[in-house]
């Protein structure tokens, strides 16, 4: 699926902003992910073309950073911390329970396409609320089995009807709305 013209134009613009074209790879990957929900090899090849870089470099970057998705995933993304403080407060049990509650393993997506358990993760800096997990860039702390059930219940709700996203984009199964602080405000 080729990139939308606006995304392609944005990437071409990015290419002009840095002394080294390589510096534009991450913003370009964000742009693609915001448009298509994940980054396909075709999109990587297109980024490479727009930036005048070898495609291998785009894949190397996209695969290095865990925040870039290379395959379609659920509407919501969950990562759960297994670092030491969380572990001391029961992260192992919570991780096992999360798997049972979702019915998928680490890396899997629920059958209804609602939730992807992206991975376990090391410290996110919320040790005060250990054990914790992150749902669509929001922290969920002081986890218990009941809290996990409640969160999953909430995430399984169908997509809100009045989505603020533009009509064209809402036709595609969006994984999530772009995180505001990472979105460039383009004129």
């Amino acid at each position: 699926m080729p990139l939308a013209k606006s995304t392609a134009d944005h990437i071409k613009d990015l290419a002009q902003r840095y002394p080294s074209k390589q510096s534009a790879i991450i913003p370009a990957l964000w742009a693609v992910q915001h448009e298509q929900g994940y980054v396909t090899p075709e999109a990587m090849a297109e980024i490479a073309e727009h930036l005048g870089l070898p495609a291998s470099l785009i894949e190397a970057t996209a695969s290095f950073y865990s925040m870039f998705l290379t395959k379609p995933e659920g509407r919501h993304e969950v990562v759960i911390c297994v670092n030491a403080p969380c572990m001391l407060r029961g992260a192992d049990e919570m991780t096992a329970y999360l798997g049972r509650a979702l019915g998928v393993r680490d890396g899997g997506t629920t059958a209804d396409g609602a939730i992807t358990w992206h991975s376990t993760i090391e410290c996110l800096g919320a040790c005060g609320g250990a054990p914790m997990m992150q749902v669509d860039h929001q922290f969920e702390e002081n986890l218990t089995e009941e809290r996990i059930d409640a969160i999953i219940e909430r995430l399984r709700q169908p997509v809100a009807v009045a989505a603020p996203a533009p009509a064209a984009a809402s036709e595609r199964p969006k994984r999530k709305a772009p995180a505001p602080r990472r979105t460039r405000s383009e004129s």
Binding site: S56, L57, A60, S63, F64
Partner: peptide, 10 residues
């Protein structure tokens, strides 16, 4: 200079 090989993943 072909940059065909790369380190993928992390």
């Amino acid at each position: 200079g072909e940059r065909e090989l790369a380190l993928i993943q992390r």
